[in-house]
Every structure is written in structure tokens, then in C-alpha cells.
Design a protein around this nucleic acid. Structure first.
Lengths: 141, 141
DNA sequence: ATAACTGTACTAACATTGATAATACAGTTA
DNA sequence: TAACTGTATTATCAATGTTAGTACAGTTAT
């Protein structure tokens, strides 16, 4: 299954689809010019109305991460550098919002810094797990 | 004016009110047992329907940052430690979301760290400006 | 050419949510 | 008693997300 809808996610379905596919493209999981499921195919797979998928795909095209070919389907855009930069900008903005919110609530700068560093550590901890697995074959020994 | 509605803010009005008042309380701007504007008073001031204010105040009470006294009005809660902790938890969660998003997009850990630190610097830069103003009376000399 | 796929566009219907409006009732205070 | 408080209820409206059905245009394989 390429994608699943998360009911606990507050975002609308089409936004979840946009986010899911955008992430798979920006992370390199989906390569340039690779075809993604057709509107009707993905709609059938996910048990979702085709219009919702079409709306998501239209936004992905607007973002420049996919392109459409009449009668053939949707494909991963060969140049996603613009979308990559925009994504970094979004992350920047989100981080700034967090920091401003912390400042507004009177949280000390040192504490926010510590919280941010530990959050980043936690998010990138997967690599640590992989290294641990490479270092030893057995979990216990 | 205690509060203003920001039309560019995507959050609904009542959420903006909740956020605005909660911040003023958690930052210490509004002291314990201090009275806040009545439902009808704030509704008149902000040109907003009283029901919207009432909804915001009800959520603020649920969050434990204000309490209501029948016939007298709303007041800042004397114990906001619980709300403070929850606020920190929210900041933590938001930071973790940012970090996970960055990781999912293939952004290097070092870059996210740099972005986070610079965002925190930017959010807390106000203090720097204040120090600069204390150090010299004139901008140019 | 035909069938079976693709994208694209449009209209209608429905549910949810945020906001407004108009009342009404209960408690407090001067 | 008058004028303020909070609280509750009901109705209406607008915006948004989703589903549904239909239609048309372009591509591909047979």
C-alpha cells in the first residue's frame, strides 16, 4: 500500500495525500520521471473518491513535485530542487513559530534549546539503531 | 486594546482569543486572580459575537488558566503550573514534529540543528535589541 | 478503429465547523 | 430595583471537505 489515511490526523484527506507523496518524493524514495498511481487507481486502492485524489494531485503539480501527461498519468518531476528549497523554508518557518511561541510563554532560551536538540536527536535516532545493528548481530550480546 | 483578530491567521477567532489570553497569562502579563474583560465587554470591544467569546472563555477555563464566578466575571487562575507544564509539552511535541518532518524530507541533521538554533536566536533577539539600546543613546553614534 | 485506460472539468448533494443572532435564565452588586 | 455578570439553547448562514455522477479529451494496446 502506497498510502493510508490516518483518521486521527486532523488534516483533510487530500492534504494527507499531498504530504505523504511529497515526502516520498523529497526523500528520494520516488525517483525522477517515475510514475505514480493514476487518479482512479489510487482512489480504488484507498477506497476514496477520485475527486479527492485529483485535488491532491493538482496541488502536488502546483507544488512542482509531479507533472501530468494527458492520457498517460502522473510522474515525479525531474527537477524538485525548488520544492526542496521551499520545504526547507517551511521547516524554518515552523521552527521559528515554535521558538516564538516558547518565548511568548516565558520559557527560558536555554530550555528551548535543550528541547530542540533533544527533539532532533529523537527524530534522527533511527540511524543510531541502524548503527547498533551493524555493530552487533545479536540484540542481547 | 487587549486583543485583536488577525485576519491572516488561519485559526478560527475563538482559537486566536484562547491563544492570546493564554499567552498573556503564562507569560505573567496577567497576574493571579486578576479580572479579565467580561464576555459581553470583550465582544463589544472586538466587534465579535458574544457567543464566540463565551466559547473561547469556556476553553480557557477547561485549560485551567482562568476561572469563572457567576455574576462577577472571569479571573486568572491562581495556579497555572499545570497549564505551564502542558504548554511546555506542546512546545516539545511541536519541535518533535518539525524534526521528524525534516528527517522525512532527507534534511541533514546538522542543517536542522543549525536552523533550530538560528530560529531560537531570532525569537529571543528582542533582548539583544534592548541591550543595544541600553548601551548607547543614539542609533548612529 | 475500438476498448480500456489516462487526465480534466463541472454540477449537485451532504456533513462538519465556525460564526452570528436572538432569547432566556440565574447570580452579583451598587 | 437596575445593571451588570455567566450560562444555555435554538436557528441561521458561510466555508470547507467529501462523495457522487457525468462528461469530454488524449494515449495506448489490441
Amino acid at each position: 500500500m502506497l498510502l493510508t489515511v490516518n483518521m486521527r490526523d486532523k488534516r483533510p484527506i487530500y492534504k494527507q495525500i499531498v504530504g505523504g507523496i511529497k515526502n516520498r518524493i523529497l526523500s528520494g524514495e520516488l525517483k525522477a520521471d517515475e510514475q505514480i498511481p493514476s487518479v482512479r487507481q489510487l482512489a480504488t486502492d484507498m477506497n476514496i473518491n477520485p475527486n479527492t485524489i485529483a485535488k491532491a494531485y493538482a496541488e502536488l503539480e502546483r507544488l512542482g513535485v509531479v507533472y501530468s501527461a494527458m492520457g498517460r498519468g502522473y510522474f515525479v518531476s525531474p527537477d524538485i530542487s525548488g520544492a526542496r528549497e521551499e520545504e526547507k523554508e517551511e521547516i524554518r518557518r515552523a521552527l521559528l513559530l515554535c521558538a516564538e511561541n516558547a518565548e511568548r510563554c516565558g520559557v527560558e532560551k536555554a530550555l528551548v534549546t535543550e528541547m530542540a536538540l533533544s527533539a532532533i536527536d529523537e527524530a534522527y535516532e533511527v540511524y543510531k539503531d541502524i548503527n547498533e545493528r551493524n555493530g552487533e548481530n545479536d540484540k542481547n550480546k
